[in-house]
Design a protein around this nucleic acid. Structure first.
Lengths: 208, 208, 208, 208
DNA sequence: GATGAATGAGGCTTCATTCAT
DNA sequence: CATGAATGAAGCCTCATTCAT
């Protein structure tokens, strides 16, 4: 009945997806330790327990692997916005998220990879496209979030949502960047609190 | 007075230093367009109008060339602090500096190179050392600057100078980073003004 | 009469043979455009609408595929001899055949493939064997043809049939080779006519 | 005085040219035994007693090496024409040249390489260009040669020099091709004599 | 019988670096 | 000091082939 029958060995979609993830995880590790250019396909495939030729059945090019990783990484930012939207207040939610981030070792990795991504985006046009695309969506999402919080009286109504969204995002980028490069120390928590506090003084409605 | 006499042909110290600078300038251009790893010594030496072997008489290793560039680049940050110290007010000086920066094309390059440096610092220990060293000095300098301005009533006395210094530096890093990768557009000026304004709301003394 | 009964699912001999031909046709196209070594099994199997693994069920090795193609190609030469044998006169038949050949685009392909075959025959012993074998048969066939025509007074009786057969074959090889690599132009017809005319002057009985 | 002075180690023009020749000789051997595609740069450089990287200082690409060889090889054909022009009669000169060729082992190699070149010319546009270019020059040269010999009464005046030039060249290509692939046997001499004799019957003035 | 998945071996090319001139 | 020449190691990618499904 079904005409989707195809002769021969059926495609193992699950297996392929899993292997793909494995490769991407391995690649993330390598890129993290060496950067996109210094990490070799041999290294990546070894860490992924696959042959080099096998790797090329999942990603037609090293550049494509990088690109997939970049996309995946950038998409994660959008998830934060969703999390923040559900928080009782933006300040509380943001602080919680930032602290969680500052203390998790894996998150430091994510930030360091982001650094490499940003650097590469300023050279490779394809990566730049993906980068700019996600960035635009991110700004929009945060704009809406801020507008929402303005309506709730958490943020000064005089601030333009979009410009402020960019400002906040830039600020967070800088903040996490400093934490990631300095290495996660115990002082990070104090630093994060102070920095967010300062930002918040700029965001909240002018004292009536 | 001291006997500086030396046998043989005198070394042309000036010439050497000049050539060194030329090489570093050429290297900066290459690293900017390709990154530290993707830029080759052949490429660099060609841009510097020198043979590849000649390059090795000024820098024993490609890594050393990178390091020299990193140091030079980071030192420039310290100069800003000096400039800011002489401004009539920190807010005015900072705004002027930031706008100047946002509009200059060459400065976008500097920021993009900084991105590469930061990314590399998170991997190479030697670069990390230089990086952290300059960072520390920078924090100290900005701390003093802030303390100075606190004394003049420009900044809230409740803020701890050192932590605030880090916060401000992180914020500026994020700000310039966003400008650099987005490409210098005309909207940059509005963005910079808004962002600094927001930061300033957080820094200035609480309305009495 | 003989008991041809066989257990299990009967083999679809026709289907197999057809598929084999398809693969060979696809391979011919690829080898033509890239040569034996540069054409990949992936490319061939794609053109043949079969999986790479599937290809290996028809030909145990790429070399075997090449060999099969070589055999098929060389056998075609023998067919010409048959055609020529039926012509009213050798000169007329040969001219007709040559012109037909020179004007057909597909025949240019055949000649170009023959070039590759000859080149490969000078290296690979297996191909050389097939090549020499067919060549020998060809020479024999043409020898008989020539002897036959000698008897009819079309060709000088002083010429040794075998040596002359080789000469004629070599001449035709050269002729078609020049046409094939030069690309089929309208001048080809004049060239073919002139060349055959010259050859014929050498073959026909000395003016009595 | 001379302003051609250049600092540093002077270029060893002789040495470079010699090395270049060595590499080309090695490449010729490899290409002969395996063909352009099957012969590897590793193999070639080993036979040339140079590192693989070193090879790339003389030829920027394997394709360039092939091209250089093709050019060199094709140019040799033009030299024959010069030799033939000085012969007492075209028939004598050609026979001498052909026999010399048929008996020399190295010449068989040259013909086999020519086969590969012709095959490759039908695919690679660059090689095709060189090929066609030399071919054109060759036809012109032989045309002049034939016209010259026509004036001396050696060749039938009714024959068009250019078309005949192509015919003769095609014939010789075919002839040498058959000799080269069959391997140099003792019967070659008889074959060559008979073939040339046949051709000559077609060329010489009609018996008065 | 036919397909998807996997892989060792190898191909071309480039790189950072050295050494003689 | 500066250049030409050379090279081992490595990088990305492809190939012919096998094997489980």
């Amino acid at each position: 009945m079904a005409n989707t029958y195809r002769k021969g060995r059926p495609v193992d979609l699950e297996g392929r997806a899993a292997r793909r993830k494995e490769i991407m995880a391995a690649a993330r590790g390598c890129f993290l330790r060496k950067g996109f250019h210094a990490a070799s396909t041999a290294e990546i495939s070894e860490r992924a327990s696959i042959s080099v030729a096998g790797l090329y059945q999942y990603f037609p090019t090293k550049a494509d692997l990088v690109l997939a990783l970049v996309e995946e990484d950038l998409e994660m930012d959008l998830e934060w916005v969703g999390v923040l939207a559900k928080a009782e207040s933006l300040q509380i939610g943001l602080t919680r998220l930032a602290l969680e981030y500052a203390n998790d070792v894996g998150c430091g990795d994510a930030v360091r990879l982001r650094l490499e991504i940003t650097a590469e985006a300023s050279r490779d046009p394809k990566i730049a496209t993906v980068f700019t695309d996600v960035e635009t969506r991110l700004v929009t999402a945060v704009s809406h979030l801020l507008a929402d919080r303005q309506a709730k009286g958490e943020i000064d109504l005089a601030l333009d949502p979009e410009v402020t969204a960019r400002t906040v995002l830039a600020f967070l980028d800088g903040l996490f960047g400093w934490i990631a490069v300095g290495g996660a120390s115990q002082e990070n928590e104090a630093f994060v609190r102070a920095a967010l506090e300062l930002m918040w003084r700029g965001l909240k409605p002018a004292a009536s």
